[in-house]
């Protein structure tokens, strides 16, 4: 079992606490002049996304989390699981709804996604920062309006709804920033 000592704590380090994998966001070394040293960390639970603060005695060890970040190709959804494939090894992985979370709104078949694997199981699926998706439904824009001010709702092929400028029409393909959920341009 690999372990990390508190002196190896730095942001991004992943370890197990109470059976859940955590990633360190911030680590502060605390040492009263005449007292014992400890580490105060802000950590994110990689399963729930919840951020908590913990305090460790300096010199204590924690169990390293077998967490790997990799790029997988999205294949299909069988109604219960979202299936991904490693394009090199062709190995397939099934991600739960909790793991894909918000990424569901943006990914379509054959998209490459960043996937965090914990003990070989998908823990977090991240949509690419930018995706290009076809518009399946939106109100026809006003003739002659090219300013883009205001905008209107549009439904994408994945089912997500975003705001687009008035000149964008059904069946057009648009570029979307998945982090903000905002329209970027026509693709």
């Amino acid at each position: 079992m690999a372990t990390y000592n508190t002196n190896e704590f730095r942001s991004g380090l992943k370890f197990i606490l109470d059976n859940d994998p955590y990633s360190i966001i911030e680590n502060e070394f605390v040492k009263p002049g005449k007292g014992q040293a400890f580490s105060r960390v802000k950590i994110r639970n990689l399963k729930t996304g919840r951020v908590i603060e913990k305090t460790f005695k300096s010199g204590e060890s924690v169990e390293a989390a077998d967490v790997l970040e990799t790029t997988l190709q999205y294949l299909y959804n069988d109604g219960e699981f979202w299936h991904f494939m490693d394009p090199q090894s062709f190995e397939q992985y099934a991600a739960s709804e909790a793991a894909v979370a918000d990424a569901i709104k943006w990914i379509k078949e054959q998209d490459d996604c960043n996937v965090t694997l914990w003990n070989g199981n998908p823990l977090i699926v991240e949509a690419p920062n930018f995706v290009t998706l076809r518009i399946t439904d939106t109100d026809p824009g006003l003739k002659g309006d090219t300013s883009g001010g205001g905008g209107k709702p549009a439904t994408l092929e994945t089912g997500a709804v975003i705001r687009v400028p008035l000149f964008v029409q059904i069946d057009e393909v648009v570029k979307v920033d998945t982090r903000s959920g905002e329209y970027v341009s026509r693709a």
Partner: peptide, 22 residues
């Protein structure tokens, strides 16, 4: 309750120091 991960060999002296800090 204050989020301290209690080490195996815990001493009350250390708990007092850390509780004061936290």
């Amino acid at each position: 309750a204050a989020g301290v991960v209690i080490p195996e060999s815990v001493q009350s002296e250390w708990l007092v120091e850390i509780l004061f800090e936290l």
